[in-house]
Amino acid sequence: MTHYAMVIDLNTCVGCNACMAACAMENQTPVWNEGKWRTYVHDKEIGLGSDVQRRFFPRLCNHCDNPPCMTVCPTGATQKKDNGIVFVDQELCMGCGACAMACPYHARVPVTRRDMREGREFYGSDYRRTSPSMDKCSFCDHLVEQGRKPACVETCVGSARMFGDLDDPDDPVAQMVASGAARALMPHIGTRPNVYYIDDIRWRS
């Protein structure tokens, strides 16, 4: 069985934000509101005085194996596929926001009717959304079904984002996770996330 996961190498992320742009265009997200991107690259300065380094930290839905956003969803709009991808059925979602309250990764954002009006203006006649909902990353499941990779992975110039199958022992993503080099965020919460990070801090002198 396929079990999709993403590994993000913080050592090679250069903070170009191409992943954000690719995601936004592929999924027609409300780019006019910084808080409503499906993926976001945080830019943080670490250090003191002249010894300061920038760290770029991409975040997105962690497609948890035990997703709290799904268990609290009263309409069943948040669902999980057999391949591990957590997605939202926009027609079923009533937008109560419980998923956003439950998500430890700040990965659920509201797309309102106002956003849809702006979306029609911004994206023109290609705009696909038909109802407001609590939005989230879908690992670009429509691309994955065609044998492609999520838009953010395809566009990443530093190959910081890698996408693969955890159940395939030959997959480099599975090997990085199995080796312990790539680790999950906040595993103590019990969400069993499927986005892993390769640490950059400990390699710095």
């Binding site: 009263p74 979602c93 009533m94 109560c96 609590m134």
Partner: peptide, 26 residues
């Protein structure tokens, strides 16, 4: 405060308890 007020019909249906028994709002 719901984003899509018509979708509330889903949880007014008592079957919502069986479909989504883990959700306390249901």
């Amino acid at each position: 405060h719901l984003l899509d007020k018509t979708a509330v019909l889903t949880i007014l249906n008592p079957m919502a308890l069986f479909n989504q028994s883990s959700a306390w709002i249901a």
